[in-house]
Amino acid sequence: MEWIVFFETWIWLGFAATGFAILFNVPPRTLWVIFIMGALGGTVKLICLKLGMNIILSSLMGALLIGFLSIRAAHLRHSPPFVFAIPAVIPMVPGAFTYRMMLGIIHLTGENDHAVFLQLLQETVDNGLKAFFVLSALSLGVSAPMLLSRNKSIKETKPNKFLNKLFDSKKASD
């Protein structure tokens, strides 16, 4: 039964990424790649959460996968990497934490009891910081692979070139 839920979640993550891609008017030839990337990135996040990682690191892992896959997809589909990465990562945005933070701010404005006010303030700040750090992890995870592997132009970069340089410099230092 758990595999059915896992597969259903995978499908919905892919559809959400594809929906944002259509909203952003990306080329139709990129839609199936965005579907797969969104599903894989969100699934990695969910698996990491299931394994006990916190939401921030789980989001970073999913976004890093999307970042690296978008570099490869850019070469295969002849489009900029952000065409693939941004719609694929949007389903991982922490809407619930942001919503709870905004609701907490609204409740704080009308609260007169000091003890309840402090409890609401603590929950609001907690939700706001979680949302901030998850968004930071998503942006870092998507952009870091592209920044690290970029030399001049995306057409001139080879994802393996960066990895070869990285491993060759380790061998030289040993």
Rank of each mutant, 00 (worst) to 15 (best):
residue 1 M to N: 10
residue 2 E to C: 08
residue 2 E to S: 14
residue 2 E to T: 14
residue 3 W to G: 02
residue 4 I to M: 11
residue 7 F to D: 08
residue 8 E to W: 13
residue 11 I to N: 08
residue 12 W to S: 05
residue 13 L to N: 07
residue 15 F to L: 15
residue 17 A to S: 14
residue 22 I to E: 08
residue 26 V to Q: 13
residue 27 P to N: 10
residue 34 I to H: 02
residue 35 F to P: 00
residue 37 M to S: 03
residue 47 I to Q: 03
residue 48 C to S: 13
residue 48 C to L: 14
residue 52 G to E: 04
residue 53 M to C: 08
residue 54 N to M: 05
residue 55 I to H: 01
residue 55 I to D: 08
residue 56 I to C: 02
residue 57 L to G: 09
residue 57 L to W: 12
residue 59 S to D: 04
residue 59 S to C: 05
residue 60 L to D: 00
residue 60 L to G: 04
residue 63 A to C: 05
residue 64 L to K: 00
residue 69 L to W: 01
residue 69 L to T: 02
residue 71 I to Q: 06
residue 73 A to K: 03
residue 74 A to W: 04
residue 76 L to H: 08
residue 77 R to L: 09
residue 78 H to M: 12
residue 79 S to Q: 11
residue 79 S to H: 04
residue 80 P to C: 06
residue 82 F to A: 14
residue 83 V to D: 08
residue 83 V to F: 14
residue 84 F to T: 11
residue 86 I to E: 07
residue 86 I to N: 06
residue 88 A to T: 09
residue 89 V to G: 05
residue 91 P to M: 02
residue 91 P to A: 04
residue 92 M to A: 01
residue 93 V to D: 01
residue 96 A to G: 06
residue 96 A to Y: 01
residue 99 Y to L: 09
residue 101 M to H: 01
residue 101 M to C: 11
residue 101 M to R: 03
residue 101 M to T: 11
residue 102 M to C: 06
residue 102 M to S: 04
residue 103 L to I: 04
residue 104 G to N: 03
residue 108 L to T: 09
residue 109 T to S: 15
residue 110 G to H: 14
residue 110 G to C: 08
residue 110 G to D: 14
residue 112 N to P: 09
residue 112 N to C: 10
residue 114 H to Y: 13
residue 116 V to S: 07
residue 117 F to E: 02
residue 118 L to Q: 09
residue 118 L to S: 09
residue 120 L to S: 01
residue 120 L to V: 06
residue 121 L to F: 04
residue 122 Q to V: 05
residue 123 E to N: 12
residue 123 E to Q: 13
residue 126 D to S: 12
residue 126 D to I: 06
residue 129 L to F: 15
residue 129 L to P: 08
residue 129 L to N: 11
residue 131 A to H: 09
residue 132 F to W: 07
residue 133 F to L: 15
residue 133 F to Q: 12
residue 134 V to L: 08
residue 134 V to T: 09
residue 134 V to K: 01
residue 137 A to D: 04
residue 137 A to F: 08
residue 137 A to K: 01
residue 143 S to Y: 07
residue 143 S to W: 06
residue 143 S to F: 10
residue 144 A to Q: 04
residue 147 L to Q: 07
residue 150 R to G: 02
residue 151 N to S: 12
residue 152 K to E: 13
residue 153 S to C: 05
residue 154 I to L: 12
residue 155 K to R: 11
residue 157 T to K: 07
residue 158 K to I: 08
residue 159 P to E: 08
residue 160 N to E: 15
residue 160 N to A: 11
residue 162 F to K: 03
residue 162 F to T: 05
residue 163 L to V: 12
residue 164 N to D: 14
residue 166 L to E: 04
residue 167 F to Y: 12
residue 170 K to T: 11
residue 171 K to I: 14
